[in-house]
Design a protein around this nucleic acid. Sequence first.
DNA 1: GCCGTTTTCGGCCCGACTGTTTTCAGTCG
Length: 591
Amino acid sequence: MTNQEISHLLRTIAASYAIKDEKKHYFQIIAYQKAADAIEKTTTEAKDLYKEDKLATLPGVGPSIQAHLSELFRTGKVKHFETVLKEVPPAVFPLLDIPSFGPKKAFKLVSVFKFTNPKTVIDDLAKIAESGKIADLEGFGEKSQADILRAVQEYRLGKTKSGRMVLPYANELAEKMLTYLRKSKYVKDAYAMGSLRRRRDTIGDVDLAVTSGKLDEVIKHFVAYPYKDRVIEKGPQTSSIIISGGKQIDIMVLKPELAGSLLQHFTGSKAHNIKLRELALKKGWSLSEKGIKQTYQGKKVMKTYDTEEKFYKALSMDWIPPEIREDTGEIERALKHDLPPLIELKDIKGDFHLHSNFPIEPSHDLGADTIKTMVDTAKQRGYSYMGFSEHNPSTGNHTAQQIYTLTQKRNNEIEKVQKSNKSIRIFKLLETDIQPSGDLAIDEKALSLLDAAIVSIHSVFSMPKEQMTKRIIKGLSRPKAKILAHPTGRIINERSGYEVDWEELFAFAKSHKKALEINAWPTRLDLPDEIVRKAVEKGVLLIIDTDSHTASQMDLMQYGVSVARRGWATKANIVNSWPLDTFTSWLLNRE
DNA sequence: GCCGTTTTCGGCCCGACTGTTTTCAGTCG
């Protein structure tokens, strides 16, 4: 059972409790939802945690839910869950997957119209809505009947569940809207918020915040967006629209003097905000997007903040970088004024996963730009060093001698460019396949031509975890192999990575000073942030690379840096933020 | 059901918006 499925199951249990007796089970419902959130978010499979007896390490998973999940993994079902679910008509559950349907609405409709078949309930409901019978129901009306019909239709089209966007795509949508918003004279400042500002690897909705003296004018302007499909809601300070393409944009507008609490509120994460508010509550304070509510001599006073720094300061803590606002310890550290200095884009001194168009007759894809062009771009970026790492010449079509000769030719070209570019040190690498056996795709003689090798998996992804871990470690254990590229092999929205025993790989990488790559390619972002965090805690070296196949793609570095920041990485962790001499000593094993 | 340098018991974030109401329930983030 996947984390997604387990999370869905826990939400189903929460919904069932809400239907049975929401008041009585109020906090249980919250607890189940919280556990569902945690399991949905984590990149570690709950089943693996169960095997290692570490389920309780998930926040919000306590003794009871842990026991239920253990039973689930052991026997495939949970007696307690079955008892709870038995009391709710099964036709309720499919409706819960439709946006705007909660437990109450779903249960009422299923009960009144006596829907019994979960397989047909959505169609049955659509028919009833079309016949006009819902409008007569108490608590419903013509409008809600039409809303139900539209929600069902959108659900059938898969429109509202069109998946999460990769970062640059969401960025582009946000920038377009921000540009449009700034055209209004009533807009003072406009910002991207939510998971976009926290730089999560994927984005659901685009959240925007605007400061203005004229809230209603901004909302009016927002809903008049030319690429709008429809308005979901529109109030005095917030609004949501669907744009063509089906993506949702949410906006919140407040006065400039509330900018601090507004940005803090709308950046999230939800877990981060809840933790902050619980903390404030202990002082008798109440936090919201409007500021901090305090009681003075029996009177409630709202204190306002125009910057986030002031808002956090009022809570006796340092400003927290958005990338780590996930309630994974950042609040405690900010209270102790002990947040780590996260790596920044300007700290990066070189890019090492670069594919030029040099005709090396590779096993996989070739780049599109010349070595010289890419060197020029690196210099423009202010890099002091860089490395070329085209894929190795294909082993199927070449003899060992041919591979050697091709590599040598590529090296000659690099040396030629190096001669006329003294301000940047250019290293000679290759991205070399780790074959299923764990052997590298090129022999020792060809390897000797390289300063170092980036090694990676490009075939036979489905291997048992132990075998895959052995394969990787065997490949990495060659002295020239210094970097493991895209370590999980995942492609966002396409495939989950292969299975690796991270503890074992971290231990090996640390003791042999091998770097794990944070691949900045937006559909990779591999290592994922959560694994970066674990690597950082273990003291494993990391390198941020773009995997560029054109010179312009070297701009993608920012996305890799975001992942590193989300993983709490500092300069000490990131080898390509080191000065040239330190870096060179490391890469060439001269330390 | 979870959780803890103010607690192992007694708390549990906060508010916006909509539709159907005439003061509020439901859903969402």
